[in-house]
Design a protein around this nucleic acid. Sequence first.
DNA 1: TCCATTAGTAGCGAGTCGAAACTATTGCAA
DNA 2: TTGCAATAGTTTCGACTCGCTACTAATGGA
Lengths: 182, 182
Amino acid sequence: MITHHHNQIRALIERLARLSESEDWAGELNPAQMAALSYLSNANRFSRAPSHVAAFSGSTRGTVSQTLRALERKGLVTEARSQNDRRSISYSVTAEGRDLAMSGKALDKAIASLPPDRVQALEQGLGDVLRTLLAVQGGRSFGLCRLCRHHERRGSAGYCHLLKVDLEPAETDQICHEQEPA
Amino acid sequence: MITHHHNQIRALIERLARLSESEDWAGELNPAQMAALSYLSNANRFSRAPSHVAAFSGSTRGTVSQTLRALERKGLVTEARSQNDRRSISYSVTAEGRDLAMSGKALDKAIASLPPDRVQALEQGLGDVLRTLLAVQGGRSFGLCRLCRHHERRGSAGYCHLLKVDLEPAETDQICHEQEPA
DNA sequence: TCCATTAGTAGCGAGTCGAAACTATTGCAA
DNA sequence: TTGCAATAGTTTCGACTCGCTACTAATGGA
């Protein structure tokens, strides 16, 4: 049974996202571009292809392809074709791109002004909702590498048993498109 | 200080909204149209003008003007010019529009599958975030009529001390653009 | 080797979006 | 009363999203 409380919460989530997106950096970037840039700046080197961005944002490869070209024209990302599989492309975020992605958003400040237990509860609740939604829609989780069932911690670094590669310390804190919660 | 937890939560909110928007009814309506339709179907008769939709969604009057005309072409809303102020227009949602707006969203179902205390915590946390964000950005709250400081309960009906009008029972549960939390 | 699959791109049409210019109406103040 | 300034909404413009349907190129399995 869906009560008006559940509607209310969806409305809140959608409105917050909309307000956050209609912020300052609008004019510079539009929501889709910012979402892609933000994803790319947190994704590991195995997860920066157009199809990954598309899967993450629930969009299509075609749409994302154009979004990424817009970002490239603006000098915020650079394209690099893969050696192994010459079909695939990996995008990297430039220094300017990273600055823009990391620039403080009003929504972050609003969240930061909450008491820690509220923040905790929010993270947990939203995480649960996301997991349930993905289970229904059949999407990937795009969680952090180090929280993956294929991840093995090795000191400050790590190892991926799925891709069979060593991981730098920083990489274990990035988003991976193959991630499956432990 | 903004920690990665706060970033995480913003990312969650934006991703949930994006996934929710890229749902089934896409093809029928796009996100902006659904957002406008959803707002209109919950707003009271004083709050259904283009400028109200614009303020609610953090958009502009110009953009919203086109969105509403698209909705009207699709037969989901109807326009009605006001007698008192002949500049202003109020849109009403048609029966089909209401059906579409009310149709079950996957995100609602995901939220409904949470334990009640989680739902409670989410509603509280997201509400706090929204209030803080609005305080910073200077937007209106667009809350429920009956939770307004100008509202006086009269049995199952009510009275608005700001607009000096009687309110039907159903109206006290709708969104008002003048709402200020009690 | 052949062909289905996968990764990405191109072009189309409807529509968003912000900005600026524009019309009509209203309200206030001299 | 006249005269503006403010307000409500629309229009137009250019850049872009978005889903779609083709399309190319590379890959990989039978």
